[in-house]
């Protein structure tokens, strides 16, 4: 316990720094993921469902490649640093958000889409006023899922010089200092839990009143 306190006092500022970096990498990756995966998901709903399914399975296969392998694979192309780390994480965020956007939008009652169209909504208006609001709970849970995982995986960013709490963990491994490993792991876990909690609050707030489950 004494060693833990020592470590904390000597790495205190470092810890704050690393946590900040960690958050930055994760959030950047998630935001990128949302910006790409949500429109892409909507786009997929406009093509024949066979092709869409194939595309999603393909992204799914990419996802099964171990994260370290992806990082290693990207290094020769992107070099090291924060940006490659964000890009690698972004790749992981795409699938859950894409899949949920696609299913969420597909699940919106076709009669509502047709009502919208029949009343003279443009495609864009149908997306904005009908599909997105109704698919939002599903999309948001995809984003939440991706965020929790990304905050965990972001520890690996240290491997390609991306920084974050992973730095502490790697230091701990290299220097045989288990306290450092704990110091990196615990905040990452807490971050993930807090993010998940905040996002589920946001999800509730954004869910149309009429669609909230009344238990």
């Amino acid at each position: 316990m004494q060693t833990m306190m020592d470590t904390l006092s000597s790495y205190g500022w470092d810890l704050l720094d690393k946590t900040g970096e960690h958050l930055y990498i994760s959030i950047a990756a998630i935001v990128l993921g949302v910006l790409v995966a949500v429109p892409l998901g909507i786009l997929l709903t406009r093509i024949p469902s066979k092709a869409a399914d194939r595309f999603i399975s393909f992204i799914g296969i990419l996802q099964t490649v171990p994260s370290l392998a992806i990082l290693a694979f990207l290094m020769p192309f992107l070099g090291v640093g924060v940006i490659p780390a964000i890009i690698a994480l972004f790749i992981y965020s795409v699938l859950p958000i894409l899949r949920n956007t696609y299913t969420g939008v597909m699940e919106v009652n076709t009669s509502l889409k047709e009502a919208g169209k029949g009343m003279g909504m443009t495609t864009f208006e149908i997306i904005r006023k009908v599909e997105l609001p109704l698919a939002l709970p599903v999309i948001m849970s995809g984003i939440r899922f991706a965020t929790v995982y990304l905050i965990g995986w972001a520890t690996l960013a240290a491997f390609i010089g991306g920084g974050g709490l992973g730095d502490l963990i790697f230091d701990g491994l290299n220097l045989y200092k288990p306290e450092l490993i704990v110091l990196g792991t615990v905040p990452a876990t807490i971050l993930a839990l807090v993010a998940s909690g905040l996002l589920s609050l946001l999800e509730k707030g954004l869910t149309p009143r009429a669609l909230r489950k009344t238990v």
Binding site: S111, L112, E114, A115, M119, G120, L134, P208
Partner: peptide, 20 residues
Amino acid sequence: AVQLRRSIGYVIQQIGLMPH
């Protein structure tokens, strides 16, 4: 098409009120 539809009232079979 969009203008045309806005100028014609339309009641679909399944009511289709927007739940949100």
